[in-house]
Design a protein around this nucleic acid. Sequence first.
DNA 1: TTAAAAATGAGTAGTTCTACTCATTCATAA
DNA 2: TTATGAATGAGTAGAACTACTCATTTTTAA
Lengths: 215, 215
Amino acid sequence: MNEKIKILIADDHPLYREGIKQTLAKIECVISECSNGEEAIKLILEQKPDVAIVDLRMPVKSGLDVLSELAGGQNNAKIILLTMYENLNYFYQAVSFGAKGYLLKGNAVDELIPAVKEVFAGGVFVSVNLRNEIDSVHKKEYEHKALIFSINTLTEAEKKIVKLVGDWKTNGEIAELLSISKRTVENHRAHISEKLNLRGTHSLIRFAIQNREFF
Amino acid sequence: MNEKIKILIADDHPLYREGIKQTLAKIECVISECSNGEEAIKLILEQKPDVAIVDLRMPVKSGLDVLSELAGGQNNAKIILLTMYENLNYFYQAVSFGAKGYLLKGNAVDELIPAVKEVFAGGVFVSVNLRNEIDSVHKKEYEHKALIFSINTLTEAEKKIVKLVGDWKTNGEIAELLSISKRTVENHRAHISEKLNLRGTHSLIRFAIQNREFF
DNA sequence: TTAAAAATGAGTAGTTCTACTCATTCATAA
DNA sequence: TTATGAATGAGTAGAACTACTCATTTTTAA
């Protein structure tokens, strides 16, 4: 990577632009700058920078406006969005508008150069905090779906028993309440534990209490 | 009770005064009325009624104002407060100002005559709903104190074990974590259950989870 | 109508915990 | 200094639950 990267910085805060310039001083680059979204659009079309580092919150036009107005155009500037907050909605919008990078200001010092290099090389870059956030949201969604799925494999009789287990009833009490044999309750519990992939003496009670809402 | 009871009704809502009068028509009484707290004080001092039925919320001066201004005076009017809400703070204030009756409007139709008779005879009267409320609050306070007391009889080693039981650890796991014998953990659990008056296989787990905050 | 799934029940072995009793060591407070 | 409580440990019996296997009857869906 010997050629100088042409970079545009768009941020309404001069001090912040300065910080970005200082950080980028470690790589070979030509930097131009502006302080709002409208200027950013104009300069990206005129100067055709390789990479544009654009603040999400700017006067006149926001970073998302810049992305949406340039989307599908002839320019080939890779746009990196800069923002304060770990709001996934903005991130998803930015991605849908064709952003190549999404940097949290808190991570910017460490990640700015890697991000510029990555998007310049044709890749994408997302701040590690946001990646973790996305992972955890996906994980939670997956776990929730898996939970609902497992619960739906339970039959009505089995669900009844889970409910009573969650009310701290013993097998003997459940048998009495449902007018069935204690052995039948034990068998149901075994089937339930198998379906829910539970093992150990208290795991079903724990499950029943933690997922009380579904029973 | 053959003499006519002299009753003052103080309520800013004429319709409500009418309802009270209709209800009191079943007993021998002489009724006068007014529509705010200031008038009520004046009439109580002038007419010296036996019983004053005073709304808590009134313009100019409230029922509590009436009570506090007459407190310690020479009048011997027994004051019954009328109110909408089961707010115990108002009740306690009213009692401290010397109210002889505290009636909830929801209970008034049934309780008005018993209340008037009771306070006229020198007793006190509190709406049944409020009595229940007070009982339940006292019961909760008592139970809470009893709980704190039992928990404080536990030794440090025992508290540690309750915490781990609440984390769904088995005796074997607890033994390993604390580097003591499984039999010792079992003995501690036995002592704990005795102190807390618990019995049954799951009762300690249940206790530990429900009172997690104390460990 | 027939095959699969669900609900019911039991046998047997093993784990986890309770419910008693008892003993040893240690610190601390009377 | 002695005795009391706290922490540690164990014996034994039984209750509660798991972890398999198996069987019968009923319901449901193909």
